[in-house]
Amino acid sequence: MSAKPRWVLPVVLLAMIATVSAGIVARQLYFDPDSSPVAVLPSENQVPPDEQPGPATVEATKDAADHPLYDDLRGVLQAYFDAINTRNYDQWRHVVTAGRVKEEPERKWRESYESTRDGTIVMWRIETGANDSARVLLSFTSTQNEDKAPIELPLGCLRWRLIWAFVVEDGAWKIDVGETNFIPQHQGC
């Protein structure tokens, strides 16, 4: 058994401290605040009635924003809500699966969403599944003519909470059909 020189431990500790310090300095120098996701805090603050449905930009909690699929799924959701708000069926059908398009052909889609405006959109949580699938816990507010609201809650303003299924189809993430998509929780604004 050989004796180690006494200077090895202090040198190793000094090297470790220098490495950690250099990492902290580099992080501060190269940190770009514009590249980090903007997370919202869950809040009970409500958009005033005359400003419903609120902003149309998809936001996220920290939990959702920290998920590796956040950017991809947020982009799909933003395109989806933009399509509804601008009545752009072609844009909408590019971010949903073929099964979803089959269930909502253009005429039916236009009739369903002719008065709808969506806003105050928040991604709360993202969970990945098997075979390129994911689920997003989502909330948003919709305004619409009362005759276009769900039969069980015919109101002009609704707050929705639901889980949407996503799958990879044709090499891109898309919103899928699924039981969770059709069992939303909603209440009047």
Rank of each mutant, 00 (worst) to 15 (best):
M1P: 04
M1K: 02
S2F: 12
K4W: 11
W7Y: 13
W7G: 06
W7V: 12
L9T: 14
V11D: 01
V11G: 08
V12R: 07
V12N: 08
L13Y: 03
L13H: 01
L14Y: 00
A15C: 15
A15T: 12
M16G: 14
A18K: 07
A18V: 15
T19A: 15
T19M: 14
T19D: 04
V20E: 07
S21Q: 09
S21A: 15
A22P: 01
A22M: 13
G23R: 10
V25E: 09
Q28W: 03
L29A: 10
L29F: 04
F31T: 02
D32P: 00
D34K: 07
D34H: 05
V38W: 00
V40R: 10
P42R: 11
S43Y: 08
E44L: 15
N45Q: 14
P48Y: 05
P48A: 15
Q52D: 01
Q52C: 10
P53C: 03
P55M: 02
E59V: 05
A60K: 01
A60C: 08
D63I: 09
A64T: 04
H67Y: 06
L69M: 10
Y70S: 07
Y70D: 05
Y70Q: 03
D71T: 15
D71Q: 13
D72H: 13
D72R: 12
L73E: 05
R74D: 06
R74H: 09
R74G: 04
V76N: 08
V76R: 10
Q78M: 05
Y80N: 12
F81G: 02
F81K: 03
D82F: 03
Y89P: 11
V96R: 04
G99S: 13
G99L: 08
R100F: 14
E104R: 04
E104P: 00
E106F: 03
R107Q: 14
R107W: 00
R107A: 15
K108H: 07
W109C: 06
R110T: 11
T116D: 01
R117Q: 10
R117C: 00
T120N: 14
T120V: 00
I126E: 07
I126W: 06
E127T: 13
G129H: 06
L137D: 12
F140M: 02
T141D: 04
T141M: 02
T143L: 05
Q144P: 00
K148C: 02
A149K: 01
E152Y: 04
P154W: 01
G156S: 14
L158V: 08
R159T: 08
R159F: 06
R159K: 11
L162H: 00
A165M: 04
F166V: 09
V168W: 05
E169S: 12
K174Y: 06
D176S: 15
V177N: 09
I183H: 11
Q185E: 12
H186Q: 07
Q187D: 11
G188S: 14
